[in-house]
Amino acid sequence: MTVSRPTPPIAVVSALIALVACMLLTAFAWPAVHTAPNHLPLAVVAPAPALAQLQSRLDAARPGAFELRVLADEAEARQAILSREVYGALLLTSGTPKVLTASAASPAAAQLLAQLPTLLSPTTPSAVEDIMPATAADPRQAGLAGAALPLVFSGMFSAVMLTRL
């Protein structure tokens, strides 16, 4: 004698599929929409009066976005970037502000830092130097990010298959 399992109604199955799809969409879209810098380490080389003005402008433009680390000179700022203590540096020692970035560490942080002088003073020209660029083969470093979705789906598929054994 075989026991037949009752099949769930199509409406229930459809609702569950829609619910799972919404959960997956939320899980992948939410971080992308709500990502913002939070205490991003930034080296600053500037005289004391300029430093106070910079801090107030940054707090007004992007509160809590940057954690400023005051350094003595450009060489120390470069070393801090290369040793990954900071993501970039803002040099206010000459008439033209200069931004040092490391796109290999974080393309998103490098892009944000490159826009920093324009955010603070739109009319002042500035220079941006990428002292640690990403590789030419993957300048946006999308290789690992592109693999995330297939890895998640293969893990979910494996879990479903293992629970069916």
Rank of each mutant, 00 (worst) to 15 (best):
V3F: 09
V3S: 11
P6R: 14
P6V: 10
P8A: 12
P9R: 13
P9D: 14
P9H: 13
A11C: 01
A11N: 11
V12S: 10
L16M: 14
I17A: 11
V20H: 06
V20C: 11
A21I: 14
C22A: 15
C22T: 15
C22W: 14
M23K: 02
T26E: 08
A29I: 14
P31H: 07
V33S: 00
T35C: 01
A36S: 15
N38K: 15
N38L: 14
N38V: 15
L42N: 06
L42G: 00
A43I: 02
V44Y: 03
V45Q: 07
A46K: 07
L58G: 02
D59Q: 15
A60T: 13
A60Q: 13
P63V: 08
A65D: 05
A65F: 03
E67H: 09
V70E: 15
E74V: 13
A75S: 05
R78K: 15
R78W: 03
A80N: 08
I81R: 01
I81K: 01
L82V: 12
L91P: 00
T93H: 11
S94V: 09
S94P: 10
G95V: 09
S103K: 04
S103D: 02
A105K: 07
A105I: 10
S106R: 06
P107A: 08
P107Q: 05
A108D: 05
A110M: 01
Q111C: 02
Q111E: 14
Q111G: 11
Q111L: 13
L112V: 00
L113Y: 07
A114M: 01
A114N: 03
Q115C: 03
L116E: 00
L116W: 05
T118Q: 13
L119P: 03
S126E: 08
A127L: 02
V128M: 04
E129I: 10
D130T: 08
P133Q: 14
A134E: 10
T135I: 06
T135R: 12
P139Y: 04
P139H: 03
R140S: 10
R140Q: 13
Q141R: 12
A142Y: 00
A142I: 12
A142N: 11
L144Q: 11
P150Q: 07
F153S: 04
S154A: 13
F157C: 03
F157T: 05
M161F: 06
L162K: 04
R164G: 14
